[in-house]
């Protein structure tokens, strides 16, 4: 009964306060999202990943750094090592669990840097126009003209190998597409009547960009970032694989594949297990992105 009334309260057409209206809008978005089974699966996997990363010391059966050269390259299902051990006898499962922390760290940092830079550049460029637009967009073009991984390699080479530098390099190569999207959206929003209307209230450019244009750009950027996450994880893994990202003995998934590569014909699981982990998380982000697009995309909403 109480649940029924809560639901009715959330689904009302006549909210009674600001908070009520916000919660109601959120709940209706959640209902739309929940109806998408695949997106829910993606969300589930990612939540599991967060939990695993948070509880890594409790979940991992072994210390990910402890070597046991007597028990190296143990196969799947061997005693005490469900996913086997790597070339130095470290438990692969434990390394994967701890590796989730690194993956999340990379994802979170990139997701905080690239879209925000892109949003700033894109909306300012689109709204102000004129020579500001020309300068900002040509800079964007320059970044877009380089192959992404090559540019990241160049940055890492200049900044030095390491996970933070890898994140910076990936972010620097990832923002231009967001700037393009944000600019395109800004151009259509800028000429709409509701922007004209707020101009007639004497609102300045800063207020219009932050309060009126950003809320409309953010949703499509969130969708785009989620869909790009797979690529970002892969780029991070690629840098790790080339030895330019996380440094050994850190259990980064890409670096683990790189180590396992040497034994791939005789001991396939050493490279395959982290590969599967990357695959699963990338897929989860893609599924989530698809679902979010259905909920957030204002064009599909009407």
């Amino acid at each position: 009964m109480a649940e029924q009334t809560l639901r009715a309260w959330l689904l009302t057409d006549t909210p009674t306060s600001r908070r009520h209206a916000k919660l109601s809008a959120l709940y209706q978005g959640w209902l739309a999202f929940r109806a998408n089974t695949m997106a829910m699966i993606g969300l589930g996997i990612l939540l599991a990943l967060v939990l695993i990363a948070a509880a890594a010391p409790l979940l991992a059966p072994h210390d990910p750094y402890v070597q046991d050269l007597g028990n190296r390259l143990a196969p799947l299902g061997s005693e005490g090592h469900i996913l086997g051990t790597d070339s130095l006898g470290r438990d692969i499962l434990s390394r994967l669990i701890y590796g989730a922390r690194i993956t999340l760290y990379i994802v979170a940092l990139v997701a905080m840097i690239a879209p925000i830079v892109g949003l700033l550049v894109g909306t300012v460029s689109g709204y102000v126009g004129g020579w500001v637009d020309i300068v900002l967009m040509r800079i964007t073009d320059i970044f877009l003209a380089f192959p992404r991984l090559v540019l990241a390699l160049a940055f890492v080479a200049a900044l030095g190998a390491g996970i933070e530098n890898a994140v910076i390099a990936i972010s620097l190569t990832a923002w231009p597409p967001y700037a393009r999207i944000a600019r395109a959206e800004t151009l259509t929003i800028r000429s709409s009547d509701y922007i004209s209307a707020i101009k007639l209230q004497g609102a300045g450019g800063l207020r219009i960009i932050t309060k009126h244009i950003w809320p409309l750009c953010v949703s499509s950027l969130i969708v785009r970032v989620t869909l790009d996450m797979a690529g970002i994880i892969l780029a991070a893994a690629g840098l790790g694989f080339l030895g330019l990202g996380a440094q050994p003995p850190s259990p980064e998934w890409g670096a683990m594949i790189s180590e396992g590569r040497r034994f791939i014909l005789d001991h396939w699981w050493v490279a395959t297990m982290p590969g599967l982990a990357i695959f699963t998380v990338s897929l989860a982000f893609n599924l989530l992105g698809d679902g979010l697009r259905d909920v957030l995309d204002p064009k599909a909403g009407e």
Partner: peptide, 27 residues
């Protein structure tokens, strides 16, 4: 000014309260 198309002249993500509140605040 009042615009022609009421479907285009209100910000799709702002509630009625936000639209009027912001206008009053600006003035």
């Amino acid at each position: 000014m009042v615009f022609q198309d009421p479907y285009a002249s209100l910000h799709p993500r702002h509630s009625v309260d936000a639209v009027l509140g912001e206008t009053l605040h600006l003035h």
